[in-house]
């Protein structure tokens, strides 16, 4: 240890640190998607929203010098995309999955197009809290250098559980997600509720994107997301539409992403492609193991097209 290395002990630490670092975008996108899906709609377009959030957040942080302004604008950009998704889906005979794919494309395209001037400059980064002050080990200090957005996500997950379960708002969202017909009969505005849920989901996904460009890895370029938004949508199914499970699943997916590099840093360099694909294999395996053709998934909103 005198040389500053941790050897094999570094692997679990790196996975933990990686889980915290890498999970935040997964967390925000999946919480947003969870809320949207609870209202009975799926938004596959959050990949585009994530990338748009990353680009707009970076651009605004660079322009204003304030990373938090970037986070806010990223969220607003995400809201715009959420509203667009909800607006198109509220029309008759429109498939929400198709709208999601369309917005994924549009969001990515716009972000790449408008983001060209921001590949080069360096924008100010979000600050982090040093929660590892109690340790003398620099690696532990670094692992516990935690971004405020991660903590926000950590609080948001139980808050969302509570809101969905115990508030009137949450109840309305769940009713709309269970049966639009019943909700209408009870006098709830189905489309307005879904609009609010999708817009909020878009906001959260946009904020998740700003984490990518403003904290980790902390710069804007076109390869930044590499499919994290779409993975996060799959993660919601993995997490059974439970915000707390979304939180744990996001940590798991983040940690899985960190496992490959961590193992290699101690000399294990076999099969990194398959290791990189591990989260997808795991999600598919869990979907196969827990689905059934006879009844819908436990926790799944009945109105949701992907669970039928």
């Amino acid at each position: 240890m005198d040389d500053g290395g941790l050897g094999w002990w570094g692997v679990p630490l790196a996975v933990l640190a990686g889980a915290i670092r890498v999970s935040t975008p997964f967390l925000f996108v999946s919480l947003g998607e969870c809320l949207t899906e609870k209202s009975g709609r799926i938004n596959l377009g959050l990949e585009g929203t994530l990338v748009m959030g990353a680009m707009s957040g970076y651009a605004v942080a660079y322009g204003t010098g304030n990373p938090w302004a970037g986070v806010l604008v990223a969220g607003l950009a995400g809201t715009v995309f959420g509203v667009l998704h909800a607006a198109i889906c509220s029309l008759e005979r429109v498939n929400d999955i198709a709208v999601g794919i369309a917005l994924m494309l549009l969001g990515t395209g716009l972000a790449f197009f408008l983001g060209k001037p921001f590949i080069q400059p360096q924008a100010p980064q979000l600050p982090s809290l040093a929660l590892g002050w109690w340790s003398d080990v620099p690696q532990v200090q670094s692992a516990l250098r935690i971004n405020a957005l991660f903590l926000a996500g950590l609080l948001l997950a139980p808050l969302l559980v509570w809101a969905l379960r115990c508030t009137r708002w949450g109840m309305v969202v769940r009713i709309v997600g269970e049966s639009a017909e019943a909700a209408r009969a009870m006098g709830y505005p189905v489309n307005a509720v879904r609009m609010a849920a999708t817009a909020t989901g878009g906001f959260l996904a946009g904020v998740g994107g700003s984490f990518l460009s403003l904290y980790y890895p902390g710069s804007w370029n076109e390869g930044l997301s590499s499919g994290q938004g779409i993975t996060a949508v799959a993660l919601v199914i993995f997490a059974r539409w439970d915000p707390m499970l979304c939180f744990y699943a996001a940590l798991l997916f983040g940690g899985a992403g960190a496992l490959g590099p961590a193992l290699q840093s101690v000399g294990v360099t076999q099969g990194y492609y398959l290791l990189n694909a591990a989260p997808y294999i795991l999600t598919l395996a869990i979907m196969i193991a827990t689905s059934s053709s006879r009844h819908r998934l436990a926790g799944a909103p009945a109105e949701l097209s992907v669970t039928r």
């Binding site: 005979r93 709208v99 917005l103």
Partner: peptide, 25 residues
Amino acid sequence: LPDAAVLVLQGIIFVTLLAGEGLQG
């Protein structure tokens, strides 16, 4: 124009098409 101009055009076409679907009902 950036290479992403093509993506933007494709995205606009797709979104417009779906919105049109719904509007024509």
